[in-house]
Design a protein around this nucleic acid. Sequence first.
DNA 1: TGGGGTTAT
DNA 2: ATAACCC
Length: 483
Amino acid sequence: GVEPEEEGGRDQEEEAARAMERAEAWAGDSPGTPEPEELGGLPWFHDQVVPAGSSSFRVIVHVDLDCFYAQVEMISNPELKGKPLGVQQKSLMVTCNYEARKLGVKKCMNIRDAKEKCPQLVLVNGEDLTRYREMSYKVTELLEEFSPVVERLGFDENFVDLTEMVEKRLQQLQNDELLALTVSGHVYNNQFVNLHDVLHIRLLVGSQIAAEMREAVYNRLGLTGCAGVASNKLLAKLVSGVFKPNQQTVLLPESSQDLIHSLNHIKEIPGIGYKTAKRLEALGISSVRDLQTCSSKILEKELGISVAQRIQKLSFGEDNSPVMSSGPPQSFSEEDSFKKCSSEVEVKNKIEELLASLLNRVCQDGRKPHTIRLTIRRNSSESYYSRESRQCPIPSHVIQKLGTGNYDVMTPMVEILMKLFRNMVNVKMPFHLTLLSVCFCNLKALNTTKKGTIDYYLTQSLSTTSHSGKRDFKMKDTHMEDF
DNA sequence: TGGGGTTAT
DNA sequence: ATAACCC
């Protein structure tokens, strides 16, 4: 199924064979360890693999699709396969396939530079994200079939917590199967590690599940991608990119420091962004080692205790953040950037375009947005990144009409958005916008509870601390219109 | 530098 | 409402 991989399979088979011999030798030879029979037919380490109290050791996979937009385009139009392909948004080539990369084209290159580097480059417009978004959710849903808790990161990355799945598989395995366990894909820094060390067994099973996930994504959706398996999200994400494209890597615990120190700059640590990196650089902190050894007091003074403690832990490869189920989106937005928009009429036209697409999306989703937001970017020559926004509740009579296609919901919405616009921009003065964005958020499931009933005003508390059998209630946010 | 997303303050 | 982060 999945395209051939250069994963040094020969080495790994040999390594697995050696590891098995060692494991068997130890199981038999070590005088202090009981024979498998004494443990009810389980190998000597089985009780450590599946501890009664269940340790906090997690198995996390990070799945990262290869040049996602380009792959979707090649599926839409197979004639593009084999040709160097770039996906374009305005003057930026946001991604390209590997044929293009071989010819020197890089991700996020200017269109002009890319064309200069590679005149044969085929470009497709990728400003409409609809097909990418749809495919993205198909991938997430497929991964949810393996294990229900999947966290999305952008359109092309997903984290899955495999801990429970691995645990179940280990319990199902027979003695000989446990000893014959092999890794799937690469092992990071593969050197003198015993793959059957108790600490490694779960990660090996994780690597097998990761391979099954990639196989399923390829067979059912036609997409290739990388995967990284490790004991937390940070390390899984870092290790997933070690062998690219369409390969996977597992990180064993003794190599985590090698992996984190393979980064050339702290900005490469996910969670340390542009701003934080700049502030740290001003303190003379640029390498991972610098951040590890920096006084936490100094760090807390510069960044605040929360960020300081989090990123210093990250610098050691420590990350206890859980894989959170992303579920359905928290917001829907559409935006458009342009060179210049300087009249109210232009603004209204752009807003109508954005709104039309959004209404389709929100209609398909089924839930109802209760808040609408307008965002602008002004031309300001100094300091680029500055957006301003205004938001307000969507009037309940407009919300009600949202699903029902016949009623005109555009007109009142555009009215609201133009009010928000005039609240931000003094239209009596000249203005120059370079971006408009409309966002629906505060999404709520369909209101099946009827007005006038008690349940309409009460919401069940999500608190899990009460096991009394009684329901905990809180007052819902109320709209004045309800009274 | 696009067209999206999220959470924290 | 903004600012930071992610892709």
